[in-house]
Simulated scan of single mutants.
Amino acid sequence: MKTTISVRPELERPTNRPLRVTFGTLWLVDLVATVFLFLVPYATELNPLTTLFYDTIGLPGVLLAGTIYAVLVVLIGYVLSKPVDGVFLIGVAAVYGVCATNNVVLLLFREPIVEQLVL
C-alpha cells in the first residue's frame, strides 16, 4: 500500500458568484479608467507600480499591472478559508469601487471625487 502526501494546499473556490462578478466589473471599470488617465494631460495615476509599468512598456504596461492585481486578488481568495474569502473580496471590491468612481469622476469633471464632494 502506497500513501501519497499532497504538497499543494487545498484551494477552495470562493462561493459568492455575484460578489465575484461585482469585483470583476469594478476591476474592469477601474482598469479602463486608469488607461484613460494616462491618455489625458490633466490627470495622473497615483499607483507607482502602474506608473512604472507604463513608463517601461507604455499602455500594455497598464493592462499588465491591472491584470497582475486581479490575479493576485483571485489567488488570495482561493487560499483564504470561508467566510474570510468573502470578507476579503468585499474589501477589495469596495477599494476598486472607490478607485473606479474617483477615476471616472476625474476623467469627466477634471477634479477628483474628494474635491467634487467638498464643493
Rank of each mutant, 00 (worst) to 15 (best):
Y78G: 07
L106F: 14
L28F: 08
P60A: 07
Y54D: 05
C99M: 12
L46T: 15
L37D: 07
G66P: 02
N16A: 12
N47E: 09
A93I: 00
L80D: 01
A100T: 12
F38C: 08
V71H: 03
L49M: 10
A70V: 03
V92P: 05
I68T: 13
L28H: 03
V87M: 14
P48A: 09
A65F: 04
V32G: 08
F23S: 11
P18Y: 02
F23W: 00
T15M: 08
D30H: 07
L64F: 09
K82A: 15
V29W: 02
T51G: 14
L28D: 10
P9G: 12
L80F: 03
V73D: 07
L52M: 13
V95G: 12
F38H: 12
V35R: 02
V74A: 13
R110T: 14
V98S: 08
Y96A: 13
V40R: 05
L63Q: 02
F88P: 08
W27P: 12
L72D: 07
P112W: 01
L11N: 09
G91M: 11
I113A: 06
R20P: 09
P112I: 01
G91T: 03
T34M: 08
T22Q: 02
G58W: 03
L59K: 02
L59S: 11
G66W: 00
N16L: 09
G66C: 02
D30M: 07
T51M: 13
A43I: 01
C99Q: 02
A43F: 06
A94T: 10
L26V: 04
R20T: 11
T22S: 07
V32E: 01
L107V: 11
N102H: 10
L107N: 04
W27L: 12
I90K: 05
G91R: 04
V62M: 09
F36K: 10
T25G: 15
A93T: 11
V21P: 08
N103K: 04
G66S: 05
L19F: 04
E10N: 11
G61R: 00
F88L: 11
I57C: 10
L75I: 12
V104C: 05
L52Q: 11
P14E: 00
W27H: 15
A70C: 04
L107S: 06
P9R: 09
G66Q: 08
D85M: 06
V74N: 05
A94R: 01
P9T: 13
V92G: 11
F36P: 04
F53W: 10
A65R: 00
L37H: 09
L108D: 09
V62Q: 07
T56D: 13
L75T: 12
E45L: 08
N102Y: 03
R13T: 15
V98T: 09
D30V: 09
G66Y: 00
V29E: 03
V104E: 00
G24A: 07
E111P: 04
L28T: 13
G61H: 02
R13A: 15
Y96P: 11
V74H: 02
V105R: 05
R20H: 06
D55Q: 13
Y69D: 14
L49D: 06
F23P: 09
A93K: 00
T44E: 14
L46A: 15
N103S: 14
L75D: 08
L75G: 10
G97D: 12
T15V: 15
K82F: 15
R110A: 13
P83N: 03
P14F: 06
G61D: 00
A70K: 02
L107W: 01
P48W: 00
D85R: 06
